[in-house]
């Protein structure tokens, strides 16, 4: 097998932002929510709105680490024909015009396992994915996937939580690539708000063990919070609040309206403004 030199956009983006002296805004939206075209239009608009890294949710019927906002987003996507194949279609279409924004696919393991991990890794790389977050694949179970991702230059991004103790951290870091995702609350997405002081201590502790950029997420809802956490870590991830903004723009049958794309991108722009003002 010939060695393909893949330039991973995550590394480039985090290096550039480090030079610029600010943290990254990472946004999460669900592929196919509320329909394929609208979700693609949103994704295409995200870089201009100020998203530095895009997490693209892969819909799953049983998203047990997610709160109501993202659960409903997955249901809308699946109801509109969303699937792993369609998610990869979305990414391919995005890459027709954007070659520099890193994209991280985020979801659950079963659709990937059902597709075949080798096939998925090849297809995701060809579509232009830079990283992958699989919520229900802890490091103990990950080797069966990482071997294929490594072959295609895709980083498997791991989560660490407030419950991840010092004994466990080395196991997480051993396979971690791209960035480290610090789950700032003990809970599901989009519920509690993270405590700034506690996150500061946790991130400081993590930095002693890893040189990977650290993204903070799960409890960030406002531009001010995004700014604060992007200053503490290397990136702030906003998911449920973006998805909720989308949900609030839908009509009574949960279909997109003319407000949907501008509402989401407008909210992302306010988040970006916050993050960009928070220079370190």
């Amino acid at each position: 097998m010939s060695t393909v030199t893949v330039v991973n956009r995550l590394e480039i983006r985090f290096a550039d932002l480090k030079k610029a002296g600010r943290g990254a805004l990472v946004t999460y939206t669900m592929a196919g929510d509320p329909d394929h075209e609208t979700a693609l239009a949103i994704m295409k608009g995200l870089p201009a709105a100020g998203a530095d890294v895009i997490e693209l949710g892969m819909p799953f019927s049983d998203p047990m680490a997610d709160g109501p906002a993202i659960q409903l987003a997955a249901q809308r996507s699946l109801a509109a024909g969303g699937s792993l194949s369609r998610t990869l279609d979305t990414l391919r279409a995005f890459r027709e015009t954007d070659h520099s924004t890193p994209v991280v696919l985020m979801g659950y393991y079963n659709p990937i396992y059902a597709r075949g991990v080798d096939r998925f890794a090849a297809e995701a790389a060809a579509a232009g994915a830079d990283g992958l977050i699989i919520v229900d694949l802890p490091p103990e179970e990950a080797p069966e996937l990482t071997e294929h991702l490594n072959a295609h230059g895709i980083h498997l991004i791991f989560l660490t939580a407030p419950t991840t103790d010092a004994r466990r951290l080395p196991a997480v870091l051993a396979q971690a690539g791209g960035f480290l995702y610090y789950v700032s609350i003990t809970g599901i997405t989009g519920t509690a708000s993270a405590d700034e002081a506690a996150v500061k201590d946790a991130v400081a502790a993590l930095r002693k063990s890893t040189d990977l950029p650290i993204a903070v997420g799960f409890g960030i809802k406002t531009p001010a919070q995004a700014a604060a956490f992007a200053r503490i870590g290397d990136a702030a991830v906003v998911g449920s609040a973006v998805v909720q903004t989308l949900a609030d723009s839908l009509d009574e049958v949960r279909a997109a309206t003319e407000k949907t794309v501008p509402a989401v991108l407008g909210f992302v722009a306010t988040l970006a403004e916050g993050v960009r003002a928070a220079r370190r």
């Binding site: 047990m64 680490a65 802890p138 103990e140 660490t160 939580a161 419950t163 991840t164 466990r168 997480v172």
Partner: peptide
């Protein structure tokens, strides 16, 4: 079998 859960739960399951 195995343990396919979110990281937050792993320490508890251990």
């Amino acid at each position: 079998g195995g343990r396919f859960v979110a990281e937050t739960l792993m320490p508890l399951i251990l």
